[in-house]
Amino acid sequence: MQALFSQLVAGLSLGSVLLLAALGLALTFGQMGVINMAHGEFMMAGAYTAFVAQGLIADAGTSLLLAIPLGFLVGGVMGVVLEATLIRRMYHRPLDTLLVTWGVSLILQQAARDIFGAPNVEVRAPSWLSGSVNIGVTHVPAARLFILVLAVAAVVGLSLLLKMTALGRRIRGVVQNRDLAETVGISTRSTDRLTFFIGSGLAGIAGVALTLLGSTGPTLGTSYIVDAFLVVVAGGIGQIKGAVIAAFGLGLLQATFEYSTTASVAKVMVFVVVVVFLQIRPQGIFSVRTRSLA
């Protein structure tokens, strides 16, 4: 029984990690259709932001909390630069975008290696995030609880932005019908840029959070990028709620399979489940209904 709850927690926690990693991608890939292979490196940039913040502010708790908005800014600015210099030129060429951004991701990894050195760096967890919290039936590591809360906060924040604000309406308008949005006077260029800023910024936040669980090194992003794409594709392109359900679904599946088999086998089984699911429902869990002729 206790093992069951521990695994439930492990699955939800893994789901929240996947969600944080995939949320930004749900915007840039899901909403804008840009295949950005450098998304993982924006996470890495966020993680190094946490490292730099810790160098400036000794208190691990303060620096971590400060690193969250800073990571958002760093990731976002990197995203805007990438969008304005490269991606903008190839909006109708997904394959070219894939190759170019992959190249950018390699360059960013090597840049991190040159700036911060090849070995992993240490980001200390604040004392209130090490150890575990007793929730009656089982113990939950505090860091994982924090990431769960952060992921939920990020989803709520993003949904509110998309639903309640003028910017959100513009983004949704451009996603649903770009031509029509343009005819009613929305500047799709600036909307694209802002969407990319927010999506990349979310990757930065994910990077900050991941320092609590894993290593902070040049290849941090590569460990998450494939899973993040998987979540977005399974969740259904263009939908935040799809990404949420897919992330937690995949997290729970991985934890369940891993408990009964091994980590490697579980990973394969999750892929098989997603492939079979996409055969039955190629549009993912949710899809945007549209009258456009694309």
């Binding site: 899901g30 259709g33 996603v175 794409f229 594709v233 263009g238 190629p282 002729l293 694309a294």
Partner: peptide, 14 residues
Amino acid sequence: MSVLPTRGRAVRAL
């Protein structure tokens, strides 16, 4: 052509 993400786009990407 619109940049609207479609099923075709996702499949091509994968």
